[in-house]
Design a binder for these strands. Structure first.
Lengths: 200, 200, 200, 200
DNA sequence: GATGAATGAGGGTTCATTCAT
DNA sequence: GATGAATGAACCCTCATTCAT
């Protein structure tokens, strides 16, 4: 059985704490979640927490980074495989993933809100958000290109609306989550209908 | 100088506390805002707070009610004055109001999030949200009627998307808020373009 | 219908507050009972309370006085009607009264305890307790005289034991109060058996 | 100098808090004593208190347990060494111990009262009290056996009276405590005089 | 690196008391 | 005399963080 090296073990602890923090922040919000909750839920002591993260804010920012990073990677992956056949299918899969995990959605909203509140968080957040936004703009541009459609508005606005609906749906989704994602699909449908076929 | 009567004074205190609470919750979130903050910011002691509201949760719910109520009244007012000439203008005014007050928007988002977390809040919240949603659905139906257009999707979905964009934009709006509301207008434009003209 | 004079009305309010305080102190103890509880339970406002009593401590002391006074009067009444025929019957009635009211008993214990804690209460209490003790000693002396028995110990000790059992039973009486008073009767029986018939 | 291990240190803190709580509750009663008082008097912070006891009620109950336990052990010890020569001497020593510590006595009374008021305390209390009572009944039975006397009343009643006098004396004992314990001895004397010598 | 006892600031809430009405 | 809004000190408890083990 492969023994974990010290480094591997440290990484593993870190990841378990991050996962636990994601759950805790989603459930109770940044202020409402306690370091103790997070540590215990991950199966560690408070001490272990502070050996891995300098503060509660630090783990929050780390989480923010992990999440935004993975969102960026997801979009980038979609760009790579854009082709007329599987595009809508890929999109649908992505949207389902985005809205399927209720905790994920609530966490996203909490991240946004909290980043807006704390100056120290805002700094780190802004940069990440910019990168994600840029990536999304690029993706949308590629899609319109491929579909040979002319966007009905500046792509930045479309991307912003996309993000707004995503976050907004997360907030609005009550206990019965069944129609989360409908808003997004309605928006997509209309977007395509509203786009002018490009002259050749 | 008109001296305030006992009752007037009480009402005034209550309102100042509500205003202060709105600021505090917007700034720091539900958990992050302290009763002490709220009371002091309103110029009162903690004791005064508790002789006006039974608990922190109570003032939060009271705030929720006030806000939702005024949103409902706004929509209702719009229904009353719907006519083809001033409709878009009225809508624009409303949207600007909705997004013009940054604190209001953040508060709205916080209200949604918190209501989703606390069972005791959720109870009170759900009812209010239902009433607002119903009102919005009625409004949208009237508008389509007046414009003699057929909606491209169930009106409930349209209303939900409307709300999602509103909340989502509030979250996404960074320090520079200038283009908040663009998403909403984009959505509205596309909505009209996507609607079929009704057969007469 | 006779209107209450201002003075009568004041006395009535005072008495209702005293009765309410007795219930509250018995139920929750001195610290545990709040002025608001007491006032509201009596059907008045806090202001009315403070118009009648200078402080929480003041009403407690007033209560102490009323109770001790009535205990003294009860003993004095028994002395007056001591005669060989009805003596034991009278005693029994008194004891039943003492233990029949659970609240009364708990209040008595609380009074004792609290008087022992607060210096300001102790002053007023000590005097009252002395008067009651003296009265009880006189009563016991008369009874032994009448029964032509010689007490088996200094009468003061007998009186003290009497009081100790009374207070102790109140404390010990659990929810099932049926055998409160047994201790007292056991003590009385033994007391008589242990007394030497006086030589004539 | 022996350094304290982690565990030893924890136990020591706990014990110091318990001792401090005993003083505080005796002095000010359950409601009157504050967690802050208790912690500071023991030389710790409030936080230390709460990492040793879950709540104020918890330390109260823990105290109750310690005290009742030691009372039980004391009675059990007496049963073990009952023999005609040293019995009365042992009893006397015990009674002196019971009444010698004024705080102990007041605490006992407070424990009884408070247990009667709080449902959550009552649960834990009742069990302990039952065990003590049973032990005392057993002890008294053994003593009568040894002395070859027939008790003049059900042993349970005798035990109850015993307890009542003990608690009652604690309450009645003023600042001058010199004659506490007299009641108890008077009761014992009479008890023996009132017992019938058993037929052989 | 991990532990958890301890700190100390603060959070929500209660409450005796005051005082303008 | 009665009212109850307001005060402000405590109270019970939580929690981010530190540090000796």
């Amino acid at each position: 059985m492969a023994r974990l090296s010290r480094e591997e073990s440290r990484v593993r602890t870190r990841e378990m704490l991050l996962a636990s923090a994601a759950r805790a922040f989603a459930r109770a919000g940044y202020s409402g979640a306690s370091v103790d909750d997070i540590a215990e839920d991950a199966g560690f002591s408070k001490g272990a927490f502070y050996s891995n993260f300098a503060s509660k804010e630090a783990i929050f920012l780390a989480l923010l980074e992990v999440r935004k990073q993975s969102e960026i990677m997801a979009v980038r992956a979609m760009i790579a495989e854009v082709d007329s056949d599987k595009l809508m299918e890929t999109l649908t899969t992505w949207l389902d993933a985005l809205h399927g995990d209720r905790d994920f959605a609530l966490l996203a909203a909490e991240l946004e809100l909290q980043a807006r509140r704390s100056e120290s968080l805002a700094a780190g957040y802004e940069a990440l958000q910019k990168r994600f936004s840029d990536e999304l703009v690029a993706f949308i541009a590629v899609v319109f290109e491929r579909l040979e459609l002319t966007p009905p508005a500046p792509i930045k606005d479309i991307a912003d609306t996309f993000i707004a609906i995503s976050n907004g749906s997360a907030l609005a989704a009550g206990h019965q989550n069944q129609h989360a994602g409908r808003s997004m699909r309605l928006f997509l449908d209309m977007l395509i209908k509203a786009s002018a076929t490009r002259a050749r």
